[in-house]
Simulated assay, not measured.
Amino acid sequence: MSVTDRNPRSWALIAISEPGLDVHEITRQTGIRPDLPVPGTVEGISGEPISSPLWQIHSKKDANLPLEEHIWELIERIAPHRKEFKSVCERHRGVLYCSVEYNDGRMEEASLDSKLLLLLGNLGLKIAFQAWRLQERGRRSEDQDNFR
């Protein structure tokens, strides 16, 4: 078993989403260019505007790296604009979504150290974990590029 095979596959993203959100204003206020901006003017499947616009940044690291590396990548992107980002999170709900492969005990744990938790808490981010058991390949946009 190689070193990367010992880590559960994972990825992370930070999202701000709520009805009426102006994603362009979030970009202006934070100075951070989102990876996925979905303004409220976008139509959903029904043909109606979506109910919750979305501002999102996501990890671009390999899914076989430890979860912490994905989160540190996001923190590094926020760092130059942390005061502005924190201010936005005081007015809007910011969530760090952590997606982790189901661990049957044969892999390392997905864990977050105390320094990272303090940084996330200081930014005002809620943390949500999503575990999955099925083949995750192709779910991330980076993985989809490998299949084209």
Rank of each mutant, 00 (worst) to 15 (best):
N103R: 02
S87T: 08
R106A: 11
Y97I: 09
D62S: 15
S17C: 03
N7P: 09
I127T: 12
Y102G: 01
K115A: 15
E25C: 00
D145W: 07
L74G: 10
G47N: 09
V100S: 03
E18D: 10
E109F: 06
T41Y: 03
W132V: 01
G105M: 03
L54P: 00
L118K: 14
L54F: 06
Y102E: 05
K83Q: 15
N146K: 15
N103V: 02
L120V: 15
G105P: 05
I32D: 13
C89W: 09
L21P: 04
A79F: 13
V88S: 07
P8N: 01
E84D: 14
R28H: 13
P66A: 11
S46R: 10
A131G: 06
G105V: 02
L36C: 00
D143H: 04
D113T: 06
K61H: 12
R33Y: 01
F129A: 00
A15W: 00
P53W: 02
K60N: 10
L67W: 08
E43D: 06
C98Q: 09
L54S: 01
M1A: 12
V100A: 01
I32K: 09
E136W: 08
E76H: 12
L36Y: 11
F147S: 15
T27E: 05
L120D: 07
C89G: 04
D5C: 08
Q130K: 07
R33K: 14
G105Y: 03
N103Q: 07
Q130V: 04
V42Y: 08
W72M: 13
V3E: 15
Q56K: 14
E25H: 06
T30M: 02
M1P: 12
E136C: 01
E48T: 06
I78Q: 08
V38Q: 10
G124T: 07
E109G: 09
N122Q: 14
E18R: 08
I45C: 02
K115Y: 15
E90R: 15
R137G: 13
Q135E: 15
S46A: 10
A63G: 02
E84P: 07
V3P: 07
S2Q: 09
W72C: 08
G124P: 10
I50C: 02
T30R: 00
V42C: 05
R6E: 05
G20L: 05
V3D: 14
G121W: 12
V23K: 02
L36W: 11
I57E: 03
A63F: 13
L112A: 04
T4Q: 10
G44K: 05
S52Q: 09
I127Q: 11
S2Y: 06
L74F: 14
Q135N: 15
S10T: 06
R28V: 09
V88L: 06
L116R: 08
I78R: 10
K61E: 15
S2G: 12
F85D: 10
K126N: 12
Q130C: 08
G105N: 02
G40S: 04
H81N: 15
V100T: 05
S52D: 09
A128Y: 10
S59V: 11
K86I: 03
P39H: 01
L116K: 09
L116N: 03
A128F: 06
R133C: 04
I14R: 12
T30A: 04
E109I: 05
